[in-house]
Write a protein that binds this DNA or RNA. Structure first.
Lengths: 377, 377
DNA sequence: TTTAACTGTTTAATCAGTTTAACAACATTT
DNA sequence: AAATGTTGTTAAACTGATTAAACAGTTAAA
């Protein structure tokens, strides 16, 4: 395979116009090289058709395993395809089939969305399943400018993707409604009372599991470090927290609540606020593991023993935090499975399913070292 | 906008053939609805051309800001485009222009590649720059099966992407050579003596900075927790480590070296090995922050004070670890900038640049709490 | 023996753009 | 006045596939 000159590679250099007369076009002739291949090196469906002695339609149908093609023809054409190493151009395929076989994952414009364990786990599930379903994955970040320019709509309108998985958004993100008419699924949240397709973890169940655990250990003064009350699933946890306290005959106090912003530092600050505001708190329920870790860090550094003085329960079950000291009792969210399910559902929607999608995946509690029986004063 | 019946929606249901005579085709007439719109709802370049009273070629040239279009025509057509809300189908665009405006990021098949701070930082840089350059990003994982099926080659051959950024690979990953003939850039490593385009951090400089620091603090028995010696950049660190020791008149011992596999646990295990094998070690140079953290965790849990007894220096400067206790002295790798640079270079290669790409980005040392002057026995 | 039904394949239209070469309408040299 | 150049636009070919409709050839039923 000697590299052949193309017209492109001629133009920029080598040939200097001028000497005889500029009107005469410079003729460059390629004498038919041994083998007599066409100048185009990329093989198309037409080349295959010619080689196999059938029409392009037949080749296309072989490619798409159309049952109207006879077994004999299928085998014959397939052999030619393999021999020639032909790979269909998927731009052309998508252009006429109207399916791109590409999905987008839309992430919030957080600087470190890509390095986050929560997103990572979901993404991993999405990626694995998308691969199995023969779909590629585009990653997008919903930056303000991006939304303003309507790039999220272009994703569909310009035929970049067949569908979008939105991860890490809540009801504050109103641009989501722009995508209502397209295949889209909201991952790990709901929106506007089920107006958008969604798949999320059962935060109510998770909250119940966590509260049951703490109540059974004898805790009655249980604080909560929440975050993002604009998120329906986050509200689920808050609601169940209050309900479970009331069911246990406890009146939840306003001073038991603090916002931890889903961050490490936020969790620490919230722990500070809660423990100084109310000395009787013996347990903390945290909206995610990061805040729980921050809270533990603060508590330990300020003379509270965990779990002897204060028990802490998280939410997420981020892998790497199992090593923390003390290791964290937490509600395990099936994030990988959530990604898988979301991807699966989205593809079924793309393929024509019409019912609303609203799946809820069960959680379970993972008991580790950050919880213990309530302290006796 | 009342939804209109299309031919598609007629076929499957409703019409039952049979009664009068099956020969007679069943005629269904749509009487021209008020407004008389065409049945196709997606606007194409032809619609725009008709509306603007020009040819499709003109519209295309306006779209691509071809200077041969007069200012007046440009404005007039652009106005029609805006009014109609026309968005060019990028499958068709790519099909004829031969550019997809899509790049792929190839990641190793690690289960948690998506949740990793190292990859996340690089990805963030790549994503930001790709967006600015008008490119979309596909994420792929080089699983064994994936490579075996040649999917990495299909990425180009089937026109999914114009180029690929490979992150997290080394010379063990021979599939990289398959991509030599296409626009590809290896991120944060080299391959086969510069046979592939690359951009990486200056690990030699980083190692020098770390060693200078330790040597200046009086350390002479310096252990090293390395990883992946098949990686050229990892070897750079090892080499400089030895060289710097020798330059300081110290003979590096074999027993000062341990493989930490780039993981937390590996770092802990390596620290165990090194400290038990050689009690005189007063400092550890670690190939990345994760191993450094693991080492510190092990050391602290086993009665060694950090940094009083043993100083530890890492590599990476992962954001979240600044909070660690003690906080980590480490070589800052400009990973975000690396992603930016890699993306930039790759695009310039796609656009025709022919020289080999081999950029090296400078590092710097971040002095924190995990290092101190050598202990006096 | 017609007629109808079924199989397997092809023709031709279509998807929605880009790009080359041609061309008309003027302006500028010789 | 003829030849040449410039400018802006367009017709038509091209990108590389899918698919509906047509068609030829064979078989089964009336």
């Amino acid at each position: 395979m000697t590299p052949k000159l193309t017209n492109d590679s001629l133009e920029p250099s080598g040939v200097t116009t001028g000497s005889p007369g500029p009107t005469e076009p410079i003729e460059v002739k390629f004498d038919a090289a041994p083998g007599e291949q066409k100048p185009t090196d990329r093989i198309s469906i037409r080349d295959v058709a010619k080689e196999a002695g059938v029409s392009v339609a037949t080749v296309s149908m072989v490619l798409n395993e159309n049952p109207r093609i006879s077994r004999a023809t299928h085998i014959r054409v397939q052999r030619v395809i393999d021999n020639m190493g032909y790979r269909p151009n998927r731009l052309a395929q998508s252009l006429s089939s109207r399916f791109t076989q590409v999905l987008a994952v839309m992430l919030p414009p957080l600087r470190h969305a890509f390095a986050d364990a929560y997103f990572g786990e979901i993404l991993s599930g999405i990626s694995d399943r998308a691969g199995k379903l023969g779909h590629k994955l585009l990653i997008e970040q919903a930056k303000p400018q991006y939304i303003k320019e309507g790039k999220h709509i272009e994703l569909y309108e310009r035929r970049f993707v067949d569908g979008v998985l939105c991860v890490g958004f809540n009801e504050k993100h109103t641009f989501l409604t722009d995508l209502r008419q397209y295949p889209m699924i909201l991952v790990d949240n709901r929106f506007g009372d089920g107006m958008l397709d969604y798949v999320h973890c059962d935060y109510r169940l998770g909250a119940k599991q966590a509260m049951n655990c703490l109540l059974q250990l004898g805790h009655r003064n249980i604080g909560m470090i929440y975050a993002a009350p604009e998120s329906p699933t986050a509200r689920d946890v808050l609601e169940v927290y209050s309900t479970e306290l009331r069911n246990a005959g406890i009146n939840p106090k306003e001073s038991w609540l603090a916002d931890g912003c889903f961050t490490d530092e936020g969790g620490a600050a919230a722990a500070h606020l809660l423990t100084t505001r109310d000395k009787d708190i013996t347990a903390l329920l945290c909206g995610n593991d990061k805040m729980a870790l921050g809270a533990i860090r603060y508590l330990v550094e300020h003379g509270h023993k965990v779990p002897q003085d204060i028990s802490v329960v998280g939410f997420d079950d981020i892998q790497h935090l199992a090593y923390a000291n003390p290791s964290l009792t937490t509600v395990h969210l099936p994030l990988y499975e959530l990604g898988v399910a979301a991807c699966e559902r989205l593809v079924s929607r793309i393929r024509g399913k019409v019912d609303r999608i609203s799946d809820v995946l069960p959680t379970h509690l993972v008991l580790r070292e950050s919880t213990s029986i309530v302290r006796t004063r």
